[in-house]
Design a binder for these strands. Sequence first.
DNA 1: CTATGCTATGTAAGCGCTTACATCTGGTTA
DNA 2: TAACCAGATGTAAGCGCTTACATAGCATAG
Lengths: 336, 336
Amino acid sequence: MHMDDSSRITIVEVAQYAGVSTATVSRVINKTGPVSPEAAAKVYAAIEALNYRPNAAARGLASRRTNAIGLLIDEVNGEFFLPMLRGVENAVRQRGMDLLISATHGLDKTSYPLGENSTDGLIVFADSLPKEEILRLHKIGFPMVLLYRSSPPNLSIPCVTVENKDGARRMVDYLVEKRGYRKIAFLEGPDSHEDAYWRKIGYQESLAAHNIPFDPKLVSFGGFDEAQAHLSVSRWVEQGLKAEVIFAADDDSAIGVMIALKEAELRIPEDIALVGFDDIRLAAYLDPPLTTVRAPIEQAARIAVEQLVKVIRGEEVGLITLLPTELVIRRSCGCC
Amino acid sequence: MHMDDSSRITIVEVAQYAGVSTATVSRVINKTGPVSPEAAAKVYAAIEALNYRPNAAARGLASRRTNAIGLLIDEVNGEFFLPMLRGVENAVRQRGMDLLISATHGLDKTSYPLGENSTDGLIVFADSLPKEEILRLHKIGFPMVLLYRSSPPNLSIPCVTVENKDGARRMVDYLVEKRGYRKIAFLEGPDSHEDAYWRKIGYQESLAAHNIPFDPKLVSFGGFDEAQAHLSVSRWVEQGLKAEVIFAADDDSAIGVMIALKEAELRIPEDIALVGFDDIRLAAYLDPPLTTVRAPIEQAARIAVEQLVKVIRGEEVGLITLLPTELVIRRSCGCC
DNA sequence: CTATGCTATGTAAGCGCTTACATCTGGTTA
DNA sequence: TAACCAGATGTAAGCGCTTACATAGCATAG
């Protein structure tokens, strides 16, 4: 680094300037332990005068606390990410903590930089971390909260997610009961992703409840990804897909579907209807506006931070937080 | 924290297990200094066997390097943010560094948690940090790169941004020369934001070049914000705005404009045309698709990281990186 | 054979904080 | 008045690393 070492102000300089001990300075800064108003005033003055900034590393080393929480994600991708980050960032900042972010995408997921020694706790998003590593962290008692992923059996790691199954089920219920569709194609998400799993289950449950046989030909891979969905649907169309509506497992893939259908000159919803899941910001602006299931992404993120902070403090937290989803009916499903 | 102290593995345990000194372990881990293949193998084996993870705080304290870069933003808001973060995250990870993110929104910007003692360098986005603090950091030689903000005079802090003035100017040139508009309203961004400043200058320069008198009545405040733009345009319309086209200083505010115009039952582009700036992902999907100026947001972020890393390493970098913008013509400007 | 210069390794002094413990006040209480 | 206690402060021992410096071994050069 290129810093001017001579100008480095440490707690020692502050203590000298203020005429107190370093312990007192520390007490003032951290509001730990009793300090007389006069001493506190002198310390604040010294800090101001010297432009002192505490060294986070030294602090962390001495206190074994980092005052930071880590967010582990797979990669920065998809509109989904923005509200999630906003929720996390706001909640973290509100508590005066720092936020570290790391994407494990492509990495050996066991060498991610965050973890037990860089943060006080971790929010693990979806499948950003392999089960073994989660086990390891849990075993050493490291605070963790899982976001959009459930705890491995018997492990009791708090997790927060949305009612994926229920949301998907209600969407299909609606398509069948209100719109009268019976040929409902499903564009599923990645296997490893729990959201994807439960949404598919919800889809299947609703079909079963309405005595519609499950047809594997009506299921293809969307991968929670615009490009992948685009590709899959283009192929489907070539092969003469017979469906009245496509249920894309998330809105990002719904966009891919929309593009593919437009390319195939199929009108939405006249020729084929389309619905998604998440209600990302884009959804309302698409042409036609997308019917979808609203997932409270930002709220889930915020709650995850709250839970994590509680875990760090050693407080009790509920093991599973399941946030309700809500049907958002727009034109793409043929409602209007 | 709730961690099991007894199980804490430090470099000492690793050294003992491997039968070498801590210095050797450190050398192996950091690939600094010569180590015999045998010793290295023993150390790796020990690390594996004990599941050792180095403590980032201790490392930072001892080496005065954090291996982390900080991204300072105002707040997590707007579609703009996503590609920027993606660019930063990718570039940071590619270099094996960590990323810390902090929003200064609402905070006393002088107490932001990142900085000289938590990171090796800082990417300062737009007006996330007041000039005084930038001065202070620069004075102590702390590595910084400014993103979408130019260096204070005489300070020579590297900055990377896009050709705002040029882009805005070419957009207006296009509106006048190709579309034949002469009543061009401008919805400006926040004063404090340099992008906003230069885009307005570009607008004015083009007007001047085409002998169109600048009319302050045709300028209102969009604030780079959907809601603000919505509000401003609704008022404008009530007051009987006479314009052929609205140039929103960024796409987020263009969305606000679009909503306001639809509420007022004005058709785009038949009754009034609309153009934006940035080409966020949404732009292409709006109804009608938005004519805008494409700014290479992700690329700018990536370059900022590259520059910062060079500064940290003490290498030379260009002071100003100005990335080209590009007109993207879609239906909202009345082109088709 | 000694001087020289590598490479490989160990020793130990911090890095800038926090915090357990000791100390010293002065006010309360019995 | 003596005993006690709580508030205010200081002392100093680490926290887990990195790294300057010292040392040792060994090949090569003179």
